[in-house]
Design a protein around this nucleic acid. Structure first.
Length: 582
RNA sequence: UGCAGGAUCGGCUAAUGGUAGGCCAGAUGACUCUGGAUCAUCCAGUCCAGGUUCGAAUCCUGGUCCUGCAGCCA
């Protein structure tokens, strides 16, 4: 029973074995810092998700980067820190899923699990310190007024009328904000920097707001919450992070990141480095859009196998190794790019080819009667589990007089280069016998082919012929009486458009959803060994692709397989080149 | 029109003043009990214009194009 795939690369060392000359720019910066003797030779990174959605493959890039870098340096560490400063959007469901996904990807934060909310008291004290230094003030302007006085990209903003409150007044007001004396939105704490700065982030940014919302960890202890820019740099500093790696859109926030740390004169001042986030073709990688797909019912949930979320990819049958190899290959740079999803699929196939046991399954069954095969005879034929890896052994599969083959493996009028079965033609049944088609039975009314009659050559048992005769085609098959029913879900790209983020005027990204991204086949027949398949286990259905037993919907003895990815199909290319299906 | 960034084969990414290389995709062939895998071959690039230099993807000058930023989101 081939239900255990090979754990092929699970023990691979995560350390990159690239030579020093081909370090990406972030690793090069870190190497320089080390060489310059910074941070006492320490390398400390962190992965800081906000628990407001599920992790996707773009996060995997960041996880591989941060955990990868830590692993490459002796004593290097990578913290998992939840950036939970906005309770209106966050939820424990997300923190649990995030932890599960990181573990599944193969990374371990050990005892280094933190929450920005752990630092709320410290952060508050830092804010007090800033007020005492005359570098922050309580502002009574409404959100609209703040926006209206911020200026524009080309014009400076105006100072708030509350900008010059005394330290004492600010201290008192801020304390009362914390005490809950003011309405939500009535006041904020702002950094006092420069309303004329060409960098909008420096125009007296808000650092605390009042929000009477229950926080998933601190409950109702707080009614004021720090903003990202304030909380993030200080959380990094508190944790002793040396290199704070984030995506490009935070480039303009770096001066603010540094400003807080400088003004507060902290001992640890991490270096923020920005890289380009991943974009993948034929999908979207923005939490907002992913939320929209989930909430709008366009997919079945965050773990819909069509989703680029780690939960979705896992359910689809992706392996952590494939995702990690992909992340290593795409590199790290500062230019925006759109990576072809074919590259991800390449690494998937590469990994699955090595580890997935082969089985036979017929998705669209066509009945075949072997006329010269004894009526009640059943043979057990030996089939290798993986030609790539003999150590995976073999299994027995039953052969009998009535079989199913794939409908598309027979053509009454075969086009050029079609090597499969046709009237009068002989093909090999994988691991079994050569068979020759002698008759085609059609439904009288519809003209549909309902059954084939064939003869087999007993001398070709096992699929070999001793007379030197060769056949062009080899088909997969199952014995009708012994095969078991299954449902198979065929997936295709979620979006029809290579880059769904590129929206034409008058359109929405959802207009580019692929209407054929899911096809459900309910009358499939699979070989009997699959009866004991375990949820989540992966197989190669011979000649078809890689499939994974769906862990959610395979209940009450019903087998539901997800197509993880198809095999490369050169016949499909030939056929396409010949001008469509015949 | 402000500020911050970025432009290398079709896609992704190396080369850090010295042979523009790799992977994916595509094409062709070999091999094969999976039209899978594997192997081989091919295709194909330095945004533009000047300059420095024996030598420039790399340095300088000037352009062009692209991305991000005006949340009490992160």
């Amino acid at each position: 029973m081939p239900d255990t795939e090979k754990d092929s690369t699970a023990l691979d060392n995560p350390v990159k074995n690239e030579s020093a000359s081909s370090l990406d720019f972030i690793r090069a910066i870190i190497a320089e810092d080390l060489k310059a003797g910074k941070n006492n030779g320490r390398v400390a990174t962190r992965f800081p998700p906000e628990p407001n959605g599920y992790l996707h493959i773009g996060h995997a890039k960041s996880i591989c980067l941060n955990f990868g870098i830590a692993a490459e340096h002796p004593g290097g560490t990578c913290n998992l820190r939840f950036d939970d400063t906005n309770p209106t959007k966050e939820d424990v469901e997300y923190v649990e899923s995030i932890k599960e996904d990181i573990k599944w990807l193969g990374f371990d934060w050990g005892d280094r699990l933190f929450y920005a909310s752990d630092y709320f008291e410290q952060l508050y004290q830092y804010a007090v310190q800033l007020i005492k230094a005359g570098k922050a003030y309580v502002c009574d302007l409404s959100p609209e007024e703040i926006r209206n006085t911020r200026g524009t990209l080309t014009e400076p903003g105006q100072n708030s009328p509350y900008r010059n409150r005394s330290v004492e007044e600010n201290l008192e007001l801020f304390e009362r904000m914390r005490a809950g004396e003011f309405e939500d939105g009535s006041r904020v704490l702002r950094a006092k920097i420069d309303m004329a700065s060409p960098n909008l982030n420096m125009r007296d940014p808000t650092i605390y707001r009042i929000r009477r919302v229950t926080h998933h960890r601190t409950g109702n202890k707080w009614c004021i919450y720090p903003m990202y820019d304030f909380a993030h740099c200080l959380s990094d500093s508190i944790e002793g992070i040396t290199h704070s790696i984030c995506t490009l859109e935070f480039e303009n926030n770096r001066p603010l990141y540094d400003w807080f740390l400088n003004e507060l004169n902290v001992k640890c001042h991490p270096r923020q480095i920005e890289f380009a986030r991943l974009n993948l073709s034929h999908t979207v990688l923005s939490k907002r859009k992913l939320h929209e797909l989930v909430e709008g019912g366009y997919v079945s949930g965050w773990d819909d196998p069509r989703m680029p979320t780690l939960a979705g990819l896992r359910r689809r049958g992706y392996t952590p190794e494939a995702i990690r190899n992909f992340c290593d290959r795409i590199g790290v740079a500062k230019r925006d790019s759109l990576v072809d999803i074919a590259l991800l699929e390449y690494y998937l196939r590469e990994d699955l080819n090595k580890r997935a046991p082969r089985v036979m399954a017929v998705l669209r069954p066509l009945r075949v009667v072997i006329d010269n095969y004894p009526e009640d005879q059943v043979e057990e034929l030996v089939a290798e589990n993986n030609p790539e890896d003999p150590s995976m052994g073999s299994r027995k599969i039953p052969f009998s007089r009535i079989l199913y083959i794939e409908q598309e493996d027979f053509r009454e009028d075969p086009p050029k280069k079609f090597f499969r079965l046709a009237p009068g033609r002989e093909v090999r049944l994988k691991h079994a016998y050569y068979i020759k088609c002698t008759d085609v039975v059609k439904d009288k009314d519809s003209g549909q082919i309902v059954e084939l009659h064939c003869t087999y050559d007993p001398a070709t048992r096992g699929g070999w012929s001793s007379d030197g005769r060769d056949v062009k085609g080899t088909l997969h098959w199952v014995s009708a009486a012994h095969s078991i029913p299954a449902e198979v879900r065929l997936y295709d790209h979620l979006f029809i458009k290579e880059n769904p983020n590129e929206v034409e005027p008058g359109h929405d990204f959802k207009d580019y959803l692929n209407p054929n991204s899911l096809e459900i086949l309910t009358s499939c027949r699979v070989e009997p060994s699959l009866a004991s398949a375990k949820p989540g286990s992966r197989y190669q259905f011979l000649r078809l692709g890689y499939f994974c037993l769906d862990p959610v919907d395979s209940v009450n003895g019903l087998l539901v397989f997800n197509r993880t990815v198809g095999l490369r199909d050169s016949w499909a290319k030939i056929e396409k080149a010949q001008g469509g299906k015949g």
